[in-house]
Every structure is written in C-alpha cells, then in structure tokens.
Amino acid sequence: MSAFYAFLQAAPNNGDGQIAQIARTFGVDWTHLGAQIISFGIVCLVLYKFAYGPILAMLEERRRQIALGLANAEKIKAELDRTEALRREVMAKAYAQAAQSVEEGRTAGARVLEQETQRAAAAAEQIINKAHEAAAVDHDRMLAELKREVGRLVVQATASVTGKILTPEDQRRLAEATTKQVVM
C-alpha cells in the first residue's frame, strides 16, 4: 500500500498521462475505488463500533481486573506479611508469657514445697513431742502403779509381821500414846 502511494506521489514528475496510463493498465476505476474506500471505512467504523469496541472494552476490563487482582495480591501479601509479623510478635509474647508462667510456677512450686516441707517437719516434730509426752505419762503412770504396788506389798508384809512381834508392853505404850492424843 505504501509502495502504491509512493508511486502515486512520484507520478507528477512523470506527468498525468503516465498515471492515468498506469491506472488503466492496472484497471483502476476511480469511482469504484472511492466507493470501495467509503464502504471499507464504513465497514471499519461498524467493526470498530460493534466488534473491536466491546473486545477492547473487555480487554480493558480484564486488564483492570488483572491489575486489581495484582493489587489485591500485593495487598494480601502485605496483609499476610503483617499477619505473619503479628503472629510472630504474638508468639514471641506467648513464649515470653509461657516462660514467665513456667518460672512463676517453678517459684510457686518451690515455695509450696518449702512450706509443705516445713509443715511436715512441724507435724513430725509435734508427733514426736506427743509420743515423748505419752511415753513420759506412761512412764509416770507405771512408776506410780509400781510405787502403789510396792507400798501395798510393804504394808501387807508389815501388817503380817508387826502383829506377831508387838509385845504387851508395846501395845500398852501405843494405847497410852492414843490417850495422850485425847488430852492434848
């Protein structure tokens, strides 16, 4: 097409007759050519209006959607990054809190262990003291019982012996002692 126009521009240098001759040679009918150009333009306009327009609009829409998708993807990626950072931060905090809780638990456990140990020691000491007291009470009771029993045996033995060894003089002396009690 461009070669044809170049040929047409070059034509005035060689004169109108030469161009007309060439047109005739190639069978160019200017009327038909004009009509064809007009009809071609109309076709182009119709095509542009009803075919290329919607297709271009659709392509534009697709492009916009893709751009939007890409933007969304970027946004999602940023959001993901932010979420990841937040997650890391939360996890770090959680780890820190967990470590603190574990530490507090250990401290509390140690404290409770210490308290329970002290309490158990006190209870054990109390039990031992009570056992000692009970043993002492038992010892005293048994000692008292032994004393009573010894006393009873001594009295029994003395009673059985004294009656035999007291002379009439002893009896008189004892009676006089009682009489003296009355007078005193």
Partner: peptide
C-alpha cells in the same frame, strides 16, 4: 486413831 492399821493405811496412801 493411834493404831498400827491406821499408820499402815497412811503409809500406803503416801505410796
């Protein structure tokens, strides 16, 4: 009471 029995009873009580 100046009896030996009373004296022994007192002794037994002291035990």
């Amino acid at each position: 009471d100046g009896t030996v029995e009373a004296g022994l009873a007192a002794l037994e009580k002291r035990f």
